[in-house]
């Protein structure tokens, strides 16, 4: 899923400072799971904004809602009335949701209330970590199901580097060396010999460096 983190309140305050009628619009899919942009977070943020404006003696009207999936036109069409009715939309969806709204409602200012952090999973309550970099050419078959592009600090394909110590990355003792994890897993799978295969120079063209990516399935578009 996409993991997000709400922006600092001061930053949000500054973004919305010139608006008095705001739609705070969450998303009930990925970012709700990371407790950043679901209905609950919409309500809390709306309360904070109201309180802040009240203390400053300023009026504000806030509409609160959350779409099921803000990255899907089908779901954002259903909030058309709410969007029409406000000065600005403060979206608590990921960057895809924010852009979907902007695309659907070209005359409306859409503001991001979250930082879209990464594609990852919930390790345990309150802890999320990155798993996939969306490089466009999956290599997990060669690395024991653990991704060095997303999880090695240097994205090394022929790791580990010389900075791996006690299973940790050279950048911090809080960061696992994914190459150590890959080795442990390959050993358990009896595939350690895979480590001696040289990983060839990667084609980053499909990972976004070749320009914005798009998939067209002609069997579906016809």
């Amino acid at each position: 899923m996409i993991v997000g983190q709400q922006k600092d309140f001061e930053e949000i305050k500054k973004m919305i400072s010139s608006y008095n009628r705001i739609l705070v619009l969450g998303c009930q899919t990925c970012v709700a799971v990371s407790f950043a942009g679901g209905m609950r977070e919409v309500e809390i943020l709306a309360s904070m904004i109201r309180m802040d404006r009240k203390m400053a003696g300023q009026d504000i009207e806030i509409i609160e809602d959350a779409t099921l999936r803000q990255c899907d036109f089908e779901f954002i069409d259903s909030v058309e009335n709410l969007v029409d009715d406000c000065d600005v939309v403060l979206s608590l969806a990921c960057g895809v949701g924010v852009q979907a709204l902007a695309e659907r409602y070209p005359d409306k200012v859409i503001l991001p209330g979250l930082n879209t952090s990464f594609m990852g999973l919930t390790e345990k309550m309150g802890v999320w970590s990155e798993r996939c970099a969306g490089c466009g050419n999956c290599i997990l078959d060669k690395t024991g199901g653990l991704c060095p592009i997303a999880r090695c600090s240097k994205g090394l394909l022929n790791g580990p580097c010389g900075g791996s110590m006690d299973g940790k990355c050279e950048i911090s003792s809080d960061v696992d060396c994914v190459w150590q994890l890959i080795i442990d897993r390959l050993r358990a799978l009896n595939q350690l010999e895979k480590l001696e295969e040289i990983f060839p120079i990667k084609d980053w063209d499909v990972s976004g460096h070749g320009g914005t990516r798009k998939i067209i399935r002609e069997d579906l578009t016809a």
């Binding site: 240097k154 394909l157 022929n158 580097c161 040289i198 060839p200």
Partner: peptide
């Protein structure tokens, strides 16, 4: 950081 290549790929 870049790491378009790694050290082994630079040798190659």
């Amino acid at each position: 950081n870049v790491f378009d290549l790694d050290s082994i790929q630079l040798i190659q």
